[in-house]
Amino acid sequence: MPEVEIRQVCLFYGSKQALFDIDLDIGRREVTAFIGPSGCGKSTLLRCMNRLNDLVDNVRVTGSIRLSGGEVLDPTLDVTDLRKRVGMVFQKPNPFPKTIYENVAYGPRILGIKQKARLDEIVERSLHSAAIWEEVKDRLHDNALALSGGQHQRLCIARTIAVEPEVVLMDEPCSALDPIATTKIEELIHELKQQYTIVIVTHNMQQAARVSDHTAFMYLGRLVEFGKTDKLFTTPEKQETEDYITGRFG
């Protein structure tokens, strides 16, 4: 059974429609990549899954997104609960201006965990999982902003998985990073796949090809093609997909 089922999702900014009847199944403990040109709605769709679009005025979403069977778009749903289950890593690494330790402990503290020992354990485990423990273990109480860009992003991943979400959304997580840092994040995604369902939006098609199991190609707010990544990147079915992945666009 898929972890996330997206059915007939339409999204409107005021009167302007940005997503058109999206149908998509996101498999449990798989990496699903959304690709497509800028403005195609892939980030918007991603933000529907943790209702971060609610922050924008005049947004209306119709259709259904079910997370492990529960309706995400239900207006009575407590979005903070949802967001604890659906973590998110952003395009620009956004560590808080706090210590490394406090960054990772932020989510657990919100969840109400207060015991020092528990927090210590969660912080260490999360940093381990995010493959940054070795680099920061001696300076957990230094300001997080002093780390490098790649470390920032891994710290943000650690912060996200510290609350043990079911799904991790990644919105172009490597677009601000150099190739080495990008490779580390991609390795990390492979690791995280063992435990988490990952949805990644990326501009970098090769990245989608490298890290994902399934890829969705979106264009002008519509889901053009969705399928196994190797299939989509070698023998896509739609001409638009073919043109996009081979770089014949615009």
Partner: peptide, 12 residues
């Protein structure tokens, strides 16, 4: 980004 990061972690 800071606000979104915090909200995305389930903070009110």
């Amino acid at each position: 980004e800071w606000r979104e990061g915090s909200l995305a972690l389930g903070a009110t």
